[in-house]
Every structure is written in C-alpha cells, then in structure tokens.
C-alpha cells in the first residue's frame, strides 16, 4: 500500500537555498530552452514554409523527381527521416547540457569543502 516507487535512486539532497535555486534554475532553463527553441526553429520554419512554396512556386514544387513530385517526395517520404535526425541531435545536446548542469548543481550544493558556486555558474554560462 505504501510501497515506494524506486524511480528516485539518488539520496535525498541537502535543501537548496532560495538564491541557489534561482541561480541554478536560470542556468538550466535558459540553456535547455535555448536549445529547444533553436532545434524547433530549425525544423518547423522550413516545414511551415512548405505551403507558401507550394502556393508561390507551384511549377518548381510539382516538378517530377524519382517518380514523385518534389513536394510529395518531401512531405510523403523525406520528412520522416529528417525528424529522426533532428530529434537525435536534440537528445544528444540536451543530455550534454544536463550533465553539465548536474556538475554545476553539485558545485552549488551547500557542502563544505566545495568551491563557491557563483564562480562556477559564471564559468558554465561562459561556455555556452
């Protein structure tokens, strides 16, 4: 009944001060958010341009390639492998950011004998 779900294997952390929370949050959210927006724009802008191209360049978009029209080839076939590439890229980058943020967060934890987190935060942001 009160079985605990084993999905949080890490030991309970020391509580973070509000200032540390804010600092950590800013770094984590800004970096992840920037990555998501960048990757999203990379994929969605061309996709959203397709209907406009269909309307304004109909001859070009309907020219025959490999037995299909260009626009059919893009929308019916090629777009799917593209989503895989884009998402694989995102997952890789996102994991890297998380690894860095974990390091940074550990630095910030108020454990004695560790360096001051502020300097590290600045350092991490500089890498971006």
């Amino acid at each position: 009944m009160s079985k605990t779900v084993p999905d949080d294997p890490t030991p309970a952390p020391a509580p973070l001060s509000v200032e540390t929370q804010e600092r950590l949050l800013q770094v984590v959210m800004r970096r992840q958010g920037a990555l998501s927006l960048r990757v999203g724009a990379l994929f969605l802008l061309p996709l959203l341009a397709l209907p406009l191209l269909n309307q304004n360049q109909p001859e070009f978009m309907n020219r025959h390639i490999l037995g299909f029209s260009l626009t059919w080839l893009i929308l019916g076939i090629c777009i799917f492998p593209l989503t895989w590439l884009v998402s694989a890229y995102f997952v890789q980058k996102s994991d890297a950011i998380e690894a860095e943020c974990t390091l940074l967060g550990r630095e910030m934890l108020p454990n004695p004998g560790r360096k001051d987190g502020t300097a590290n935060a600045a350092q991490e942001e500089g890498k971006e």
Binding site: D8, T10, P13, V28, M29, C101, T102, G105
Partner: peptide, 8 residues
C-alpha cells in the same frame, strides 16, 4: 527542469 541527479 533540473536533472534527477540533483535530487530536486
């Protein structure tokens, strides 16, 4: 948003 390793 924080990675699980941080335990938040």
């Amino acid at each position: 948003h924080a990675p699980e390793e941080l335990g938040v």
